[in-house]
Write a protein that binds this DNA or RNA. Sequence first.
DNA 1: TAGTTATTTGACAAAATAGCAAATAAGAAG
DNA 2: CTTCTTATTTGCTATTTTGTCAAATAACTA
Lengths: 98, 98
Amino acid sequence: MMKTEAEKMMHARAEVFKALGHPARLAMVIALGKGERCVCELQELVGSDMSTVSKHLSILRAVGLVDSEKRGLQVFYSLNCPCTLDFVSCVDRALAER
Amino acid sequence: MMKTEAEKMMHARAEVFKALGHPARLAMVIALGKGERCVCELQELVGSDMSTVSKHLSILRAVGLVDSEKRGLQVFYSLNCPCTLDFVSCVDRALAER
DNA sequence: TAGTTATTTGACAAAATAGCAAATAAGAAG
DNA sequence: CTTCTTATTTGCTATTTTGTCAAATAACTA
């Protein structure tokens, strides 16, 4: 199946939205909006296995939404697209008026 | 499985992102950013079966991203959350610097 | 009545998914 | 070096979701 440049672009964009389309990942992104967090903190936040959290984070990193930096034993994640938070606020407003 | 209010909220938000996590739906939302469109125009845009397009649109409407209005034989859809376009621009910028 | 636009309803294959257990890596600390 | 901790990766499984289409229905027009 041939794919035009525009289709590839749209696909890439959609991947970003898909990455945010999971409650745990979204919760982590919102938490990162308040500052960087290590994986263990994020694990406590979402309450899943650490390997699961790690996988979620790799999905967010793959689409460029977050960055990671290792410091000692810990890996700290930070939000690369603060505009995400603005959109979440907008979504909240839309959800409120339903 | 019990669900707190906060969890339900996060789930509802994630549903909005999931709705946007498909190339065809995202393309339609972006098109609607330029003004209302009837289903047949959107069908031409994405090139799928009309029933498929209709289903995609119902998903977007279910989460409150778009509105619809019937006029004669046609149904016109409009974007309910223009902020979506701002976020798409932001995503594009993030994708560009990869 | 016939034609058009759109939605709904199954139905189905295919794909994606989340999640966990176990293995691996990499640094810290004794 | 050994051990402990934090994190990632690697299968693997079951579950779910997914997108799509064909056919039926609806609603309006001519």
